[in-house]
Amino acid sequence: MRNRSIVNSQESTVVATSFIAMRICLALIVSAIFFTSSAQSVSASVDRDKILLGEQVTLKISLNRINENNFFVATWPQINDTINHAEIVKRAAIDTINVAGNFTYQQNFVITSFDSGRWQLGPFNFIIQEKSTGKKIQLQTPPLYLTVLPVDVSSLKEYHPIKDIIDVPTGFNWLPVIIAALLVLLIATIAFIIIKRKKKPASQPRPELKGTPLERALKKLKALQQQNLSSTGAIKKFHSDMDDATRQYIEEVTNIKALHLTAGELLPRLKFYMQDAAERNNFSRIFNLNASVKFARYLPGETESKNTLEEIIRIITDIDENINRARTDADRLVPKY
């Protein structure tokens, strides 16, 4: 009886130990799956890996699962117009996708090639930076291979049959010449009458832009600092000119059509160039203030208007520094193709 109790006790201990081991293994598997799903990753793909000479294919590069509370994008791949026997026909802007707080950045390129062969595209390098420690992490995509096939012209060898010699008439037909001369004379007469009635003024040569986009924007904005805002009209014009100078700068440095977008449409597209959420909110407040003044919904005082101008000068200066820093890091750390 005593031996049976000892055996039962040992069996219970083995079962409990096995159950605890199973729970530990299950927890490790769940943790590994969660870590894998939340880690950053990069990818590069083409919608077709074989094309004929001159055909176009779409290349997509992506930076996935970036938590903006912990990381920001320090360097994006700078791809030249020619990349290993392939040419970039069109490059799209960088898109941002938010999935449950993790951001995915992606960019599409339309490419073509006029050299037959199998060409390597990439690898493409991304750099993200940890906000708390400043540590930089480089992520690299695997290389892609694009096969460019020559056009098959073997079926065209006998496309045009051989014809007999055709006799050319020796007489000259003057009728087509006379008709052509009359048509030319008629067209010349009509063109002369139209030009004489409506002479277009000579087109003015396009002025050459001097300095960088930031220098031109700061020149316009600092000129506003000297204006006297003693009337309602002066305040409206002050905010309208400030808004136009800011949008013109954004359009020149980012290729975003800022002059034709509302504040609600523009701010989400600036997310890549303004990593700080508080800075974006401040920028949005200034755009909304300028719009309210232009459409007579609000009239600020001179002090508020001048303080808003100082904020705009500081923000676009920070944007320009971020763009220049990213380009410098790209030139130093990322190989060009």
Rank of each mutant, 00 (worst) to 15 (best):
N3T: 14
N3P: 05
S5G: 10
I6E: 13
Q10K: 13
Q10A: 05
E11R: 08
V14W: 13
S18F: 12
I20K: 08
A21G: 09
R23I: 09
V30K: 01
V30M: 06
T36W: 15
S43T: 03
S45C: 07
R48S: 15
L52Y: 14
E55W: 01
T58D: 05
L59P: 00
L59Y: 01
K60V: 11
I61K: 04
N70Y: 13
F72T: 06
A74E: 15
I79N: 07
I83A: 09
N84V: 00
E87P: 03
T96Q: 04
N102M: 11
T104F: 03
Y105V: 08
N108R: 05
N108G: 04
F109S: 05
I111W: 00
T112D: 04
D115A: 06
D115G: 08
R118N: 15
P123R: 06
N125F: 15
I127M: 04
Q129T: 09
S132P: 02
G134I: 01
L139Q: 05
P142S: 09
P143K: 01
Y145M: 10
V148C: 02
D152Y: 02
S154D: 06
P161F: 08
I165H: 09
I166D: 03
I166F: 12
V168Y: 14
V168Q: 09
G171Y: 15
P176D: 13
I178S: 06
A181Y: 08
A181Q: 06
A181E: 06
V184M: 15
V184H: 11
L185P: 02
I187M: 07
A191Y: 12
R197L: 07
R197S: 10
K198D: 09
K199A: 14
K200G: 11
P205M: 04
P205C: 08
G211I: 02
T212N: 00
T212F: 01
A223P: 10
Q225R: 14
Q227K: 10
N228D: 10
L229F: 03
L229D: 02
G233E: 05
A234I: 09
A234F: 04
I235M: 14
K236S: 09
K237S: 06
K237L: 07
K237M: 05
D241Y: 06
D241G: 02
Y249M: 04
I250T: 01
E251Y: 10
H260L: 10
L261F: 07
G264A: 14
E265R: 12
L267S: 11
R269A: 07
F272T: 03
M274I: 15
D276P: 00
E279L: 11
N282I: 07
S284Y: 09
S284C: 01
R285E: 15
R285V: 11
N288G: 07
N290E: 08
S292D: 12
S292H: 08
V293C: 00
Y298A: 12
L299E: 12
L299Y: 13
P300R: 02
T303H: 09
S305P: 02
K306V: 04
L309Y: 03
I313L: 03
T317Y: 02
I319D: 01
D320V: 02
D320I: 01
N324P: 07
R327G: 03
R332K: 09
K336N: 01
